[in-house]
């Protein structure tokens, strides 16, 4: 699972809808991998306005990446573009859990696939 995806995922439990603490989900026991992908600058430019920067900074810090700028960059120079590509697109969480900060529900990640199937009473 790409870090990009975790910036959009929110807890699916019914009582967590529009609860600020339900986003972003927090990693637990995350095992990381890096998969090289071709840089797609147009894509990065397209999604950057929709990236929640404070959430991304939080996720990055939880995973041990501490060099992320504290503010969303206004202009994407070549290096910033590359760094963002590496973090958002190439860095993957292969195993571990995503935990909701509101209800505590733990979503398992196996082989990079997060399990968002919920028991019906939580939907």
């Amino acid at each position: 699972m790409k870090i990009l995806t975790t910036n959009y995922l929110a807890c699916a439990v019914k009582t967590c809808k529009s609860e600020p603490a339900a986003f972003p989900l927090h990693f637990k026991d995350a095992e990381l991998a890096r998969e090289e992908l071709e840089l797609n600058p147009e894509f990065i430019k397209n999604v950057l306005p929709r990236i929640d920067w404070p959430a991304l900074a939080q996720t990055a810090a939880e995973l041990g990446f501490t060099t992320l700028p504290s503010q969303k960059p206004e202009n994407l120079d070549e290096q910033t573009m590359k760094d963002l590509h590496t973090l958002l697109m190439e860095t993957q969480v292969m195993e571990g859990k995503l935990v909701c900060g509101n209800c505590g529900y733990e979503y398992n990640i196996k082989e990079g696939i997060a399990n968002f199937l919920l028991p019906n009473h939580l939907v």
């Binding site: 699972m1 790409k2 990009l4 995806t5 959009y8 995922l9 929110a10 807890c11 699916a12 986003f23 397209n46 929709r50 929640d52 990079g112 696939i113 997060a114 399990n115 968002f116 199937l117 919920l118 019906n120 939907v123």
Partner: peptide
């Protein structure tokens, strides 16, 4: 990216995520 999820349980993404 792949997610094991049931569309009938909703879409577990925050508002305005997708193009």
């Amino acid at each position: 990216d792949l997610l094991l999820a049931d569309m009938g349980q909703g879409i577990p993404f925050r508002a305005g995520s997708f193009d």
